[in-house]
Design a protein around this nucleic acid. Sequence first.
DNA 1: GTTGAAGTTTACGTTAACGTCAATGTTACA
DNA 2: TGTAACATTGACGTTAACGTAAACTTCAAC
Lengths: 126, 126
Amino acid sequence: MKTIREVCEAFGLTPRTLRYYEELGLLTPVRTETNQRRYDKKELAKLKLIARGKRFNFTLSEIKEMILLFDVDRTGRAQLERTIEYGQEKMEEIDSMIEELKTIRRELSWLDRTFREKLEELKGGE
Amino acid sequence: MKTIREVCEAFGLTPRTLRYYEELGLLTPVRTETNQRRYDKKELAKLKLIARGKRFNFTLSEIKEMILLFDVDRTGRAQLERTIEYGQEKMEEIDSMIEELKTIRRELSWLDRTFREKLEELKGGE
DNA sequence: GTTGAAGTTTACGTTAACGTCAATGTTACA
DNA sequence: TGTAACATTGACGTTAACGTAAACTTCAAC
């Protein structure tokens, strides 16, 4: 059970940020008898998910949905079916993101080649 | 040479957005004698770049850098070398984004499988 | 037992990327 | 030639994701 500052240092965040995530319902740390936050393994796992999501500039509300996905408390069948369906959507989104990134990558490669050729021309005419 | 409204309809943007992009130096439409904006092919090409960048939540200032990359007015050798170098960085960034997305994709697949198995268990016990 | 670091809530400030008037000038067409 | 649709700049409003300051309580260590 880590304190807020320990978690902050581990993840490179500020206390304000952790409290904000809690305010949005992304984190649910327990409280000590004197009202201080304590973070268990599950909260730390959520923070890893948040970090990954942020690297792709997902919004916090999108990340919240994904956290609910990873939240294993859902046992009911309807819930489970909804979860699978939602995961399906997310996978399709990610697939198309990958495709588009590959396209950008190809375009950049092309630019790179033409620029290098141009540079060779300049060098040749020296 | 398209008017601001024509461009807006073509790209699904508002006039305010185009003026904002211009304010940031992303676009440089010419003006008619009566001070109205006119957009040529080059501006439209920039807008396509902006659209693609936005799909990946690049910031407008990042997109601006990329637009400078695609801006072919750079003839000097030093400029060219710098451009190639910058392109290299961008390609590496994109490569690692692709890798991370693939990782997420694998994790989601795994979740999908376990959820489906769980669902089958529930169905079996009916 | 005091004191400095760390914790709490409340609340206002900030930046990016526009939205939304307002006041005014311009174009197109019946 | 008038008038509705479209253009211009200026300025204030908005949302997300925190930063920052204030006023207060709690903890750790000497």
